[in-house]
Simulated assay, not measured.
Amino acid sequence: MVLDLKICPACGDRAERPRVESGLLVCAVCAHRWPFRRLPLFALTGPSGAGKSTVGPLLARRLGDLALVVEQDVLWTGALRDDVPGHPAFRSTWLRMAAMLHQNGRPVVLCGTVAPPEFERLPERVFFSDVHYLALVSEPDALRKRLLARPAWREWDEERVEEMLEFNEWLQAEAPAMEPPVELFDTTHIPVEDAVDHVEKWVRGLLSGAQRPSEAIG
């Protein structure tokens, strides 16, 4: 058995478009079928500066052994960073990584800037029972101030800040109409602990209505 769900454990073929039938992965080459944990993925998204990196470490302590909280930017490097617009290779790599982590029995909370169109159309989306999206957003003036206050090595110049402000505005306008819809939470005037409370309740609430992670084997 291999952890990479794109690779058939029987013949070793690497699927470009993985297939799931009746809760089992199916090899298109040898027709081998094998079970896997198909868990929900939680995307804690939103513009840079809205609080994801602040909430993430505190959320990891709160959720304990219920879920794994990971930071998207650790893979924002090399060829993945130089990908075409939309960064499908970067997004696909993250979905593959999350799916492998899910085989340990705990769902992943991914902290990073992403929108449903960037995940939902990818072949690796089939590895997840659901992808839930919660976006931390902010009022423009507060977001601008936070971004410009960041260390110089993060390279937040005016042009990049404006791009993020546009994304912040677009996300708030389009979130309800996306498929699936994106839940919004404004952090402008919210203490950090209250933001962590909100995200924790979001994760726990969605998991409480689903199968327990350790039992969710396809």
Rank of each mutant, 00 (worst) to 15 (best):
A60N: 11
R81Y: 09
M178C: 01
A79K: 00
A31G: 13
S214F: 02
R33G: 05
P176F: 13
V126R: 03
T188A: 08
L206I: 09
L206S: 08
F128C: 05
V55Q: 07
S53P: 06
H87E: 06
R154H: 05
P181E: 11
M164Q: 14
F119L: 15
P107W: 07
V20S: 03
D4R: 13
S138Y: 04
L3M: 15
K145M: 15
A175R: 00
W76Y: 13
S22C: 07
E158A: 06
L25I: 10
D73Q: 08
P88M: 11
N168S: 12
L95F: 04
P191F: 01
W156R: 07
V26Q: 11
T77K: 11
L66C: 02
A28I: 12
K52V: 06
P140A: 05
P107M: 02
P191Y: 03
W94T: 06
C11D: 14
A15W: 09
F42A: 09
A115C: 13
R19M: 13
V203P: 03
V199Q: 01
L63P: 10
V161C: 05
A142D: 10
E183S: 02
F119T: 14
V55T: 10
L80C: 00
F90L: 15
A142W: 09
A98N: 13
V84N: 13
E139T: 10
D83V: 02
F119E: 12
V114R: 07
F127P: 01
V161E: 05
P40K: 09
P9N: 13
P35C: 10
P140G: 07
R204Q: 04
L171C: 03
P40C: 07
A173V: 02
C30Q: 13
V2L: 11
G56I: 00
R38F: 10
W94I: 09
L68Y: 12
